[in-house]
Design a protein around this nucleic acid. Sequence first.
DNA 1: GCATGATGC
DNA 2: AGCATCATGC
Length: 501
Amino acid sequence: GYYLKPLQASLIRAGIQPKGWAFDAMLAGYVLQSGRSSYPLPDLVQDYLGERLPTEDTTGESGLAAYTCAEAAACLRLEQVMSQQVAAMSCADVLYRIEVPLSEVLARMELAGVAVDVAYLHQLSDVLEALLRAKESEVYTLAGEPFNIASPKQLGQILFEKLKLPVGKKTRTGAYSTDAEVLEQLAAEYPICRSILEYRELSKLKSTYADVLPRLVHPSTGRIHTSFNQTVAATGRLSSSEPNLQNIPIRSEAGRQIRRAFVAAPGNRLLSADYSQIELRLLAHVSGDERLLQAFADDRDIHAATAMLLFGVPEEGVTPELRRKAKTVNFAVLYGMSDYGLSLELGMSVGEAHAFIENYFRQLPGVRRYLEETLAFARQHGYVTTLYGRRRYLPEIHHANRNVRQAAERAAINSPLQGTAADIIKLAMIDLDRRLRQEGYRARMVLQVHDELVLDAPAEEVPALAELARECMSGVARLRVPLKVDVEVGDNWAEMEKFMG
DNA sequence: GCATGATGC
DNA sequence: AGCATCATGC
């Protein structure tokens, strides 16, 4: 078949649970070349069969029948060719044990949807509107005139020409940058910058979330049914759209008010299970670095443990500031840090950042070895892989332009880690979905947010479900480090409490 | 349609 | 600084 998920959803909605889905050409296309922007069937037919699918003429009934038959025939032949190639690049497990079975799980999740409190969102929208108007007046007063705050061009003119604030960085096109980093720098001395930041936050919350989410509530289910896209992210992650439920605010207090709108069905509770530090645990596993492995074996606070190593202080000497620096370095490693990037982040010179990184590698030599081996592999083969064999091609690893080449090098470091984490949670979703159905749970998996699964569950199922989710998620891979899973339970997605057990 | 800037992991 | 989606301006 081709793009089976909608078909699977239709069948499931009709109460039919077909088994033995064998092949999906769209998913095969994704596994073979995850960097493509999309996988239209005519393109796959052209690229893998060297043929042209007849042009779509579905005006009449006979035209529709003929085109549908041509599609079906093409899929059968695509399976022969693509399956061979998938096997030849050792991606059979990724396609047949991960992506194909996951498709049906995603269909079930999309059908289940998630409940939102619409009345609450309307109320919140009105509050945001009032706060926004007040903040707008505040900005106009500080600027000495009204203007469109949402226009970066007008805002740049007001701040850097009229008010003569010191110019920070410029954008790629040479305009004054007014992004949060620039405004944050200026905010201590110029209150208007703080006001603009607050205006931006409120504006984002209202226009992207409070005003849009209620419109996407399905009239018959009363729930929001996102799309989980399986072929978008080059690393193997899922994405979510219409609406994106993978970027619901959590960090700011105002943002968390949006999250409160995501609720359990009546009589139910929301259960969230998330992997703790999965990417750093994977770094420990694939690098085999002794100290990193030991830190996770001891279930240490990894950023604090890193701070002890980097700064040579005892546990009680780890100040919040040192821990924050160590945390930044840990993330920088996952993203394939350059000393330049780290220097910007930590506000130090490139030389200091370089010394920082050298110190990190001296303390964690296994990590350096892994990063060097991964880069060498990418340069030699032109791709990198996850633990389960998922491949990402990096043609720009030999690019003549240094910036382009270095971006590819960072992707070479990051993709195996981000992609392996994606493989693992996908496997866990398949397993958990099977267990939920086999064991007759009424709970439904409703969201996946990269390292987190959210279930909408009858209150009485919560204790057993917490155990089941933990078991599925941490048991799905046997690594040199434990996969720690934290479980939280609550009536809404903002107010969750740790679940012990 | 691209640029910018917001949100998440 | 890795990976995404969405709103807005122009």
